[in-house]
Design a protein around this nucleic acid. Structure first.
Lengths: 176, 176, 176, 176
DNA sequence: TTTT
DNA sequence: TTTT
């Protein structure tokens, strides 16, 4: 039924530590900025460099993995789709945003401290198993789990009430 | 945990009607040949054409859709991965085969008779709905359904015993 | 020297006839909107549809081909990269735009009136030959050529003075 | 004029040091094996791993860069197309081979000894400049250059007579 | 604004 | 074996 292909493939480095929030329904939503730099020579022979900063959003299980394993500087492969949104700012001006909705992620490098092995996909043979996914409860870690945090110290505790996030994402926004 | 990306994107035309078989477990496995042609001029200025024939395999729900909607000549977008296999022929000689395992398909064109609208993905927001997928029984059409065939006359009836296919594909071969 | 991959693959239909302008240096710059639609079912089982409108820009030879062969409704494959720009509107408000800079295009469908065969790449074996490209003068058709227009009636004549476009694109903006 | 898209995107590690040869015309042709591994759980919950070994071929300038910078174990992004060939072995048996013809390459990792920055494309904004390419003589380094080898000790000297390679590649095989 |  |  779908009409069209909307596919993005990025390889780059994160410009910041990812930030994870949770929807009311408990779904992780992780965002990070990813830089891709291209180089060319202009007609005078000068090297020209240009960097694009992509806003990448990871939902669900992928959001949890991204929030847990990715850090500022991480080199990462991201596959996903482009999403354009329109919103009205607090100043009443209409603005537009563009996001890359990830549906596969793979950490690159691997030998370094920040690198290393973690990779995750969605509905993909490679990158996370169906077993893993089906065992996952469809909600965020409970407050008890979250407050302990011994096992995942860098993951932000899910909000006691997730609805500070509900303006941005209904659970139906899960893009799959 | 996966290491690596193995991704193929093809747009081309089928050289034959797809053939669908069913595994013992009732999973559809559809195969077709897809041509992609490239053109260049050699140094003498002559146009050189070269066609690659890709063997594409569609599993499961995607195999059913491919078998039902694709025909010889269909223009199609296929996304998947490359799989190399080694086998020993009846003459005792080792041979190699290369297959494209599709995980997304979309029919192109659309205005023609053969074209038209059908698209299907796997674990994808676009291309078939999760609802569709979850409603699907995890087995091939029963013999009764198959023999009637009123609703899908071009779909090969599943074999009375699927095990003529079992040498090729165990159900665990489902690539997802 | 480049760091990163920034790759976009789109298959969709144009929402408008492409518009071609020329830079001061005579390079064609063609723009069009391309729709990709995805479908999913939400938790209530209702079908949800969402369309992204991509602003696609074709430069140089590819811009000439796109301007000549593509039309509103054309189904097309586009490969390129994402480019984010920031500008200040006439109201003094900072705004952002996102463009897909095409570096390969292929018309799909083919049987219809609007479809049909034309394909073009840049630096690609498939889709346009190196010979074609090297023979091409690095400037727009001259006014004489343009005013005749017998051979390409739908191509906008290049402006007598191209510099109405110079604010948008210097010739060094050619992304290759 | 081209009909079809034949695109492959790989991220993986090399299983061997690349081997570079030169055509009669002096074009570098570098080959290496690249592994991509995927993981899934079967129905019994056991982790299943499968590795595909891709034969990747780099031509021309890209072949020189690949031969110079890539090593066994290098993690690399490769973009290219699939090419199927048929040949008759010395035993008189017809065999088939599948190669990935690279048209873009980028080294990943970067911080390690083996990693590190080098990337190269063909006809791409990112990854090597048009200036670089056009300045490059369309031949291999001369024997004098090659014999010195001080700057590139791991590059195989081009053969005194390249025609030991001519059976495999005419210069017209350059895929661009 | 396209398409089905 | 497709397609243009």
């Amino acid at each position: 039924m779908a009409r069209g292909i909307n596919k993005v493939i990025l390889v780059g480095n994160l410009g910041n530590d990812p930030e994870t929030k949770y929807t009311q329904g408990g779904m992780a939503v992780t965002k990070a900025s990813l830089a891709t730099t291209s180089v060319r020579k202009d007609r005078e022979g000068n090297t020209q460099e240009r960097t694009e900063w992509h806003r990448v959003t990871f939902f669900g299980k992928l959001g949890e993995i991204a929030g847990e394993y990715l850090r500022k500087g991480s080199q990462v492969y991201v596959e996903g789709s482009i999403r354009y949104d329109k919103y009205t700012g607090q100043d009443g001006v209409e603005r537009y945003s563009t996001d890359i909705i990830a549906d596969e992620m793979q950490m690159l490098g691997g030998r370094g401290e920040g690198g290393g092995g973690a990779g995750a996909g969605r509905g993909e043979f490679r990158g996370g198993s169906a077993g893993d996914r089906s065992e996952r409860p469809a909600r965020a870690p409970s407050r008890q789990e979250g407050s302990g945090q011994g096992h995942a110290p860098r993951r932000e505790a899910p909000p006691a009430k997730a609805n500070d996030f509900a303006d941005d994402f209904a659970d139906d926004d899960i893009p799959f």
